[in-house]
Design a protein around this nucleic acid. Structure first.
Lengths: 255, 255
DNA sequence: CTTATCTGCGTATAGCATAAACAGAGTATG
DNA sequence: CATACTCTGTTTATGCTATACGCAGATAAG
């Protein structure tokens, strides 16, 4: 489990909220949490998450590896700090009064954050993440978007999760579409595949495959005829439509 | 990028579909792909994904590390094989005629697969994954569930993605809820947090926090008053409601 | 001034994935 | 049948990575 401070908070939480006081004694520090996290994010953005090693971060800052450990207790802690820093949400956002548009705007903000740093998708989300400043900010904003919806608190939180997961999935899909260009299966390989992926065995999927190019993800996706934006919007619209139905059921009010 | 066979297929794909012929010369093999994958899955199920090292898998089979490389070209390839093997979908499933119930059943099947091997959630999903047998089977089944819905092919694929991501998110949440029991922040830490997470800064979230216990995930979630099942169902119902609305718009037919 | 604490560095350790080479087992070919 | 070829499993080695430990020096507290 993550290291904790004397007060029992996970260290990453305390650091992220600025609660971790710099020591008063000893020589002046050559580094800071902010500088270390920023350097790590820069490496991740340029070369991907795998390139973020303690050695690489230290070197980019002109220090040796072990000096980083004066600031973070482990690489995991650094990753947690990177995660929240990367997913920055603006402090002040003016949302539309209409909850539907507000939710769409909120989803867009979360989406842009993920797109700016897609490597974040590969980091685990656990109990510590939710206590971090940008997560808290995003949650508050999402709840603000839904303030006029007749849902229970936990239902609203559930909606926040559904939408943010939807957004994450589509950013991941974008990444995979980009990567898929690199995989070009020659005709011979495609022929072999068609001998096992047959209409008899997969009667619904094979017609879909034949109508488009096969791409990505755990659950297969056809190349989007209307582009990925349309499919992202479709998913979001489904959720919002569902919410409108729910609103109507609970208030008798027609949206 | 993943290794490929002579025919240009990713090796993992060829192996998973049984296209990778065993060599005809040389001494009899002491291992097989199936045995290696099964041993790796057993370790992952018992101790988590981090415990799956080439050394550990080889040892559990009574061989030395490097002999595994006669069968898989890298650890990544082994992980890809594990991923698809773990997410097994039955060959024959009879779905309800009603597309709503069919989609719910499909979601349930995917959910149970994830729950049986939750470490799969930590594995990246990329272009190779979708060509693997169980992914193909899951996609065909999902499309079968929606055969009566008036959607374009790529829209159906989009729905498959939305639902499977929803399912994955909730299995992950379940895991995080289990892990959250381990984080007990003492009163002192909670007090410190409440000094930064204030009603002035986060007017919508703080009341939610005060009405329940704070838990998990990137976007914060309150402890579910009605349990996690209710929230899982809520999310799925939203998507299905949205689909009903879409069906009505396209057919003029009232569901 | 003395003591305590902190900083950054150098050295070391353990774990892990994988390359390369070797000896022997089994098949294909002439 | 003998020879050549291919494959198997093992051993040894390499490089990378995270992190422990100890040292010398810098700075603050008492």
């Amino acid at each position: 489990m993550a290291e904790t401070t004397e007060t029992g908070l996970p260290r990453a939480v305390a650091i992220a909220w600025g609660m971790h006081e710099a020591p008063q004694r000893g020589p002046n520090r050559g580094l800071s949490h902010e500088r270390i996290v920023a350097a790590a994010i820069e490496i991740a953005d340029a070369e991907g998450l795998a390139a973020v090693t303690m050695q690489a971060v230290a070197k980019s800052l002109g220090f040796t590896t072990m000096s980083l450990y004066r600031y973070v207790s482990s690489k995991d802690e650094l990753l947690q700090l990177m995660q929240d820093t990367a997913l920055s949400v603006p402090e002040k956002v003016r949302l539309p009064a209409d909850w539907q548009e507000a939710l769409r705007m909120w989803a867009g903000i979360v989406r842009e954050a993920y797109r700016a740093h897609p490597w974040v998708l590969a980091l685990p989300r656990g109990p510590v993440s939710i206590l971090m400043p940008n997560s808290v900010r995003a949650a508050d904003l999402g709840l603000s978007a839904m303030k006029d919806l007749p849902l229970e608190d936990d239902e609203k939180i559930g909606v926040i999760l559904v939408i943010s997961q939807h957004v994450a999935a589509w950013v991941e899909l974008e990444q995979n579409l980009a990567a898929a260009d690199i995989i070009a299966i020659p005709a011979e390989g495609v022929q072999l595949l068609s001998e096992v992926i047959t209409p008899e065995r997969f009667p619904h999927l094979v017609p879909v495959m034949e109508s488009g190019n096969y791409i990505v993800d755990e659950v297969p996706v056809v190349e989007m005829n209307n582009g990925i934006e349309a499919e992202y919007d479709l998913g979001l619209d489904l959720i919002i439509s569902g919410l409108e139905v729910l609103e109507q059921q609970r208030t008798g009010k027609q949206t």
